[in-house]
Design a protein around this nucleic acid. Structure first.
Lengths: 226, 226
DNA sequence: CCCCGTTGTCATCATGCTGTCACAACAGGC
DNA sequence: GCCTGTTGTGACAGCATGATGACAACGGGG
């Protein structure tokens, strides 16, 4: 049973949404403004958040950024409810960090399908634990911490995302294009060689465990257990 | 080799898109209006369709619905090209049925990445197998690893692609021309004898399993189970 | 407003992959 | 057995690719 937090100031709409989601077997919690939303996100630890872009008191985008920044809420997927014409690009992009969006007015059918899709996507990504162990390397996505041989290592956010992507798919080769897309985002325009530099930084910081990152010439990189 | 149908009335844009996709190794077919597009989709059976939302004569959305309804085109993924502000929600939603969209103006990088992502998504659904076993030889494309009798062997990128092509079509003779096209790319200009050299390298590295690669005098090479 | 950590880009260097060639080996037809 | 066209193979030079360090732009925090 998944819990969904609905942050939406129009009570009628919030109620309608909750009603339909509950009909599909989800548990729903409703918050009517940003502050309350943030609090409930922390308290209830929902599996997904439906967030209205226009909220009294706090912009939905700001709230989303906050959620994605805070340690204990950052891994919760967020679906934005936007009115037509609002800057959708930014919302789903890296700037705000929402995982999907639905444009108002939406059919309940569409909303439910989106919710299912996002939950499925996240189930795959977070399958197994939030702590992954490959050889001497341990990565804890929820605490945002990496350790090699028990020794904690400080990574920057880009480095962490890159390493996380490699760890999630360890053994499998990831091309530079794939890494750019999954770490830097779809809209990233720039040199694919940027990946090289960051791989170097990872290797350096990881010390002797650095050679677990293998270069596959002509294809990309992969992480291998030793 | 994937074939992509580009349905776009602005010939300049269509040409540019095709140019960039072909640079990435895709084959492109261009249609300049809806009717032609529908016909070419049926004829060429492309692996993916890039469809402009605004077309003279027939709306892109209508065309997309038609494609998704017809039996022999319904399984072809469609990426919509939309101008900002057009109703993206409907397009990718369930009403129209497109599989993804790109907002104009787009960078070629983004387009190519979207195309790759969609094709990969569809490929996963259709083939699934990344590990192939022929006799004592195992090839794992996702991990980019080849093993003979359980022993891992390091192959260079060209060698790997060549072996993969042979393994994929084991038992069937592949002419040098076909191998050149599928491994080196269809626009490769050079000596067909290059293939010979690489076959030799494969045989050497594979050890006693090397004689699974048979020379078919006057035709080409094939891989045989022993 | 300044400082410092982060990040993308670039130039340079090292590496080893790759295509070509020359010649040897070979198969098959006569 | 000889001849011819085809294939095998080792050597090698050129070059594509990746590693790396320097650096400037940027941005957040104090």
């Amino acid at each position: 049973m998944h819990t969904i937090l609905v942050i939406e100031d129009e009570r009628d709409l919030a109620g309608l949404v909750a009603f339909n989601l509950e009909k599909e077997g989800y548990r729903c919690v409703i918050a009517c403004d940003g502050i309350q939303g943030l609090e409930m996100a922390r308290q209830h630890n929902p599996d997904l958040i439906l967030l209205d872009l226009m909220l009294p008191g706090m912009l939905g985008t700001e709230l989303c950024k906050l959620l994605k920044k805070a340690e204990n809420t950052s891994q919760i997927p967020v679906i934005m409810l936007t009115a037509k014409g609002e800057e959708i690009d930014k919302v789903v992009g890296f700037e705000v960090g929402a995982d999907d969006y639905v444009v108002k007015p939406f059919s309940t059918r569409e909303l439910v399908l989106r919710v299912k899709a996002v939950l499925r996507r996240f189930a795959v990504e977070t399958e197994s634990e939030t702590i992954i162990n490959i050889g001497t390397v341990t990565i804890d996505t929820s605490r945002h911490v990496v350790a090699v041989k028990g020794e904690e290592i400080a990574f920057t956010s880009t480095e962490f995302k890159l390493l996380h992507t490699l760890v999630k798919r360890w053994g499998r080769v990831q091309s530079r294009d794939v890494l750019l897309r999954d770490v830097w985002g779809y809209n990233y325009v720039g040199d694919t060689r940027t990946v090289d530099t960051h791989i170097t930084r990872l290797r350096t910081k990881m010390g002797e465990a650095g050679d677990m990152i293998k270069t596959v010439r002509g294809f990309g990189y992969k992480l291998e257990e030793r």
